[in-house]
């Protein structure tokens, strides 16, 4: 009877059409909508990366590809066991990644927690300001901080002199330069951590907190037993992304120190750039790129297995 009360024409046709579309056709539509995105990513990123694996077993100078000599694992052996510059860059990158990601996480989490206690409108106003550094080009960030750390003109030495301290040669002392690079990176990338943690924090359900408060749980207990378990997936994804981004750092260091003084702040990314576009070492730089890829993969699988383990226990 309900059917009879429906007007004739369009609705029935629409209903018939909905029924007539088989599930497999819908699934086909679902797949076909994915094709362009996957095609672009494959052509631009995945396929060249695969080609790169092949190139890493050859020896050739970059502009020409005709005199390629197959050398097996020679590039890798040279890189991993003989190249002092690679060792230097690897150590630099490791210090940089551990230092900057740790600081970003601690600061980002603290800011996110502090923002979560504030009112909605306070977050609306300060949120964009906290986001700003992440929206500035790494090239501009590097140059701005080059001015900030500058011996004579820099604001940091200026601040030191106002409180009566000696100025410091930040960018020309090896250890301090690496420290300066880390702080600069932290300044730019902390907002990313803050944003995704704020997103995680404000989407937490309220009920567990209410019942925990009624049961007499302290603030610390609520944080430990409710907030943290809910946030673990967000934190893991955030740390994973920050770590893989830090491993491939380029722009900020390129403009801040250029890898100097000496090679004290040389990261793998700039080493690869130099090998490729200054020394035109085709196969050698391909091997270096693969090593970077493997390091990134190991790190991301480490995080993901951590996430899985955490998911099982909670």
């Amino acid at each position: 009877m309900a059917d009879a009360s429906w007007p004739r024409g369009l609705p029935q046709r629409a209903r018939r059409r909905i029924r007539s579309i088989s599930i497999s056709r819908l699934q086909l539509l679902g797949y076909s909508l994915l094709v362009p995105s996957f095609a672009i990513i494959t052509v631009i990123l995945i396929w060249p990366s695969v080609q790169n694996i092949a190139l890493s077993f050859f020896d050739f100078r970059l502009p020409q590809r005709h005199h390629m000599v197959f050398v097996g694992f020679d590039n890798y052996i040279r890189l991993l066991f003989e190249d002092r510059l690679f060792h230097r860059a690897f150590i630099n990158t490791s210090i940089f990644v551990v230092g900057s990601v740790t600081l970003q996480f601690v600061l980002g989490f603290a800011i996110a927690l502090a923002l979560a206690t504030k009112s909605h409108w306070f977050r609306r106003i300060t949120g964009p300001i906290f986001t700003l550094p992440y929206m500035i080009s790494p090239a501009v960030v590097g140059l701005t901080w080059r001015l900030m750390w500058h011996y004579n003109l820099g604001l940091i030495n200026g601040a030191l002199s106002w409180v009566g301290l000696e100025p410091v040669r930040w960018l020309s002392t090896p250890e301090l330069a690496l420290f300066a690079v880390i702080i600069t990176e932290v300044w730019r990338n902390t907002p990313f951590m803050t944003i995704i943690l704020v997103a995680g924090l404000i989407s937490l359900p309220v009920e567990p907190y209410e019942s925990a408060t009624i049961d007499g749980a302290s603030a610390w207990q609520r944080f430990k037993w409710i907030t943290m378990p809910f946030l673990i997936p967000t934190i893991t994804v955030g740390l994973l992304l920050q770590t893989v981004f830090a491993i491939r750092v380029f722009g900020i260091v390129f403009t801040l120190t250029g890898g100097g003084p000496g090679n004290a702040t040389l990261p793998l990314g700039i080493l690869l750039y130099r090998q490729t576009f200054r020394y035109f070492q085709g196969g050698y730089s391909a091997a270096l790129a693969i090593v970077m890829l493997v390091v990134g993969l190991v790190v991301s699988f480490g995080y993901l297995s951590l996430l899985k383990k955490g998911g099982e226990t909670t």
Binding site: I44, P48, S49, V244, I247, L272, G296
Partner: peptide
């Protein structure tokens, strides 16, 4: 996950 791949790996062939 493709975002976690370093795009720098693709640079030479690309």
């Amino acid at each position: 996950w493709t975002r976690t791949l370093p795009p720098i790996v693709a640079i030479v062939p690309l």
